[in-house]
Design a protein around this nucleic acid. Structure first.
Lengths: 209, 209
DNA sequence: AACATCATGTTGTAATTACAACGGATAATA
DNA sequence: TATTATCCGTTGTAATTACAACATGATGTT
């Protein structure tokens, strides 16, 4: 899924290049599949995707990996654990050929405007994660779907929306099985709760609050 | 649940009182049950609990409230949506009689050291939320329990741990039913996966990684 | 058009879960 | 000690879900 940043790292910053020079930023390129940060590694910089995309994957104790998120152009990654000086809980690898700009956090800490921007990005992500927990805390797939769709409708300002997840991604997002999700969606349509086709959804009893 | 902050708002700050004076902080007291921030309200300050505790509650579209978290002494609240200038997605009320120190964000933004501390707190919370999503994304109660217990064992550095949730809170945390959770816990014990009594748990096949 | 590929819907079954209701144990209080 | 309140396990049932396997439909390619 996407980590949306309406506010970006360089909001309100005039001379981006000079600033990056001053911070000691540096660029690195990675081939598709290449490891960028390994689980357990401790890093002193965070990254911004300049070109391409990276995958953030968490491996559980048995070694099974699940996708936490992808980061695309202009998006940040590794800020949370670089700022807290904790070992990386995830493995980050190149989803495609990509180039990354690295920001050394010790220098970043000296730049007021940059701190504010990162703070804003982190605060947004916090709100996003909290919302997601709310969806995941629903007891049935039907309730999860309603929680998610209502939120999307509110965000998009309409009862008719298009989501940017296919059915499998939607199932992963709601932590359920794809075929079980299909079943529930059909049932909800028969019940007159929603109408949908593919990734277009309409919430039939939607009311703003 | 608790929002743990090993790093605090005033880490590395010498003259706390002078700083607060300079920032235009102010203190307010609330009676138990009193509303501190109402859903939809837009706020330009975040709060630190000085005494007592506050409850952060999310109301869904039907008006049902669920506890997002509590904040206790020294803990922050309302930082995420005050920094992003979005309307409060939650209602915050006094869990007990309490007093709150309010920090006007426009002034906070001028203080780098404060920004760094808030950034660290937010980054930690981010890691916590991500971990929680991982637990909630497991498909069965058994898997949720294992995911949670392994994480706690790792945090506490032992296969034998005490958790600070009673059974109902644990069920809420894992978004499941209390009696269903009890059932699964007993089954796991019979299977030799765990031993437990009350809120003391032992993970029998625990290995660090 | 023919083909492959992918996304989505469908079906069946076994397992898991939610929910309500009850009972026993434990801790707290009078 | 008696009384309450609270926490936790237990039971039963209906509903939901996971999972696998297959069918259908859409999309893109040669």
């Amino acid at each position: 899924m996407m980590l949306s940043n309406t506010d970006t790292l360089f909001s309100g910053i005039e001379n981006k290049d000079a600033l990056m020079e001053r911070l000691g930023c540096y660029k690195e390129s990675y081939k598709k599949g290449g490891i960028i940060i390994e689980k357990g590694e401790s890093v002193r910089s965070f990254g911004e995707v300049m070109e391409g995309a990276v995958s953030i994957i968490r491996y559980d104790y048995e070694g099974h990996g699940t996708l936490v998120s992808n980061a695309y152009e202009t998006e940040l990654f590794a800020e949370s654990f670089s700022f807290t000086s904790t070992a990386s809980p995830v493995t980050i690898s190149a989803k495609t050929d990509c180039s990354i700009i690295w920001f050394p956090i010790e220098n970043v800490k000296k730049e007021n405007r940059l701190l504010i921007n990162i703070l804003t990005i982190l605060a947004n992500r916090n709100l996003y994660l909290t919302k997601r927990i709310e969806h995941l805390s629903q007891r049935t797939i039907k309730e999860k779907v309603l929680s998610y769709l209502k939120d999307e409708c509110k965000k998009q300002g309409s009862a008719s929306i298009k989501i940017n997840l296919d059915r499998q991604e939607m199932a992963d997002f709601l932590a359920t099985d794809r075929s079980a999700l299909s079943l529930v969606l059909m049932k909800m349509q028969r019940e007159g709760l929603i109408e949908y086709s593919r990734n277009n959804f309409k919430l039939l009893n939607f009311k703003e609050d």
